[in-house]
Nucleic acid binder design. Sequence first.
DNA 1: CAAATGTTTAATAGAGCTATTAAATTATAT
DNA 2: ATATAATTTAATAGCTCTATTAAACATTTG
Lengths: 209, 209
Amino acid sequence: MATEEKNMEEIILQKAEELFLEKDFASVSTTQIAREVGCNQALVHYYFRTKEKLFSAVFESKFKIFSESLLPIFGKKELPFMDRIKEVVAGHFDILKVHPTIPRFILNELSGNSQRRKMLVEKFKSLSQQLYTDLQKELDEEYAKGNIVEMRAIDLMLDIVLLNVSAFVTFPLASEIFHHYSAVENYLESRKQENIKLIICRLKNRESI
Amino acid sequence: MATEEKNMEEIILQKAEELFLEKDFASVSTTQIAREVGCNQALVHYYFRTKEKLFSAVFESKFKIFSESLLPIFGKKELPFMDRIKEVVAGHFDILKVHPTIPRFILNELSGNSQRRKMLVEKFKSLSQQLYTDLQKELDEEYAKGNIVEMRAIDLMLDIVLLNVSAFVTFPLASEIFHHYSAVENYLESRKQENIKLIICRLKNRESI
DNA sequence: CAAATGTTTAATAGAGCTATTAAATTATAT
DNA sequence: ATATAATTTAATAGCTCTATTAAACATTTG
């Protein structure tokens, strides 16, 4: 009964989220949203005017979640560097795990040539530059102390994000392909540990290649 | 003039490839394909009957390219193991570089709930099992010789594929975001070297985590 | 209670899409 | 050169989609 009490605007938005995350802009119609919600199709337009605006509402909220997932790349300075890196990778992974379908959704939308794209590229830019400077300074310090190999912050950031994101982008497929990972949980946990190992090894390994 | 000589069926297929790789199934219409080719819309259906079949023709050929990109994970047994791994990562990367838009295209299609999906999962399965057994045997041998750390073949395969694929899936975006990589070439070359390093470090690093 | 405001629906305009059909055009073969 | 076959087009049926409008219904408020 609690569910039935919710107002239509929110119910429509929720269904739109569900469908847009599963398919994509062009494959979801306001007609379908209305049908699945059980309301008149005009109501969707009453609340959101256009399909574009409805999609935007969904996108903005998902994009916010995703970009906030990048923030743990900062991190509390008390712990030793290596432990913090481990925490950063695990922390970023865990946030994505709460929203496993978001990475593909974002990726897909940003691969098109939407108007949104330009604005979002700017957002990502400033976000990564924020992180970049601090991280590079720390990497240089740790390198001077002989704790890690020399490394560009940008490469480390990309390593972490790309590895973690790719686990989620591929998991519906991968967990089907590899029977080893019968449960979804296994594939994800396995990738999480593997990603941590990869990053740590990369930072520690002193032998030149 | 040479171009004009080509038969319509092929011209239509080429345009369909171009558009389907850029957008997605739902966002491309046979009307649009015909318009851009400059022929009558019925002609698209004359040659391919349905949009679905046309898309399938495109998809099959791209999927073939992609799955063949995974084959260098075998490799010539003359070289020392570590050199071969390096070659495998670089080789896989270079094949994708010739078809940079394919990874995202495949990923996207396989994320939907198409009829194709099931068949493709089977193809991937048998492909990966082929590679799996041989690779695991070699990894165990190299571990016994003390050349590498203990590792599951499946993790190594995923590390390589996910890292390489993610470079291409993200490159239109990433090369815009990071001005450091002003030229696309820089982002890709940079990721290629980074991926090789990651894999090598992962295999060599003996310190437990 | 009645007026005003907010929510929901039915109906529909207008557009684009897929697929088919029959006719026109071009090429091939006898 | 003419019959036959292959290619291309025009026209259109039948959908589905987005967005709007006017009317019905519900809720709030004076």
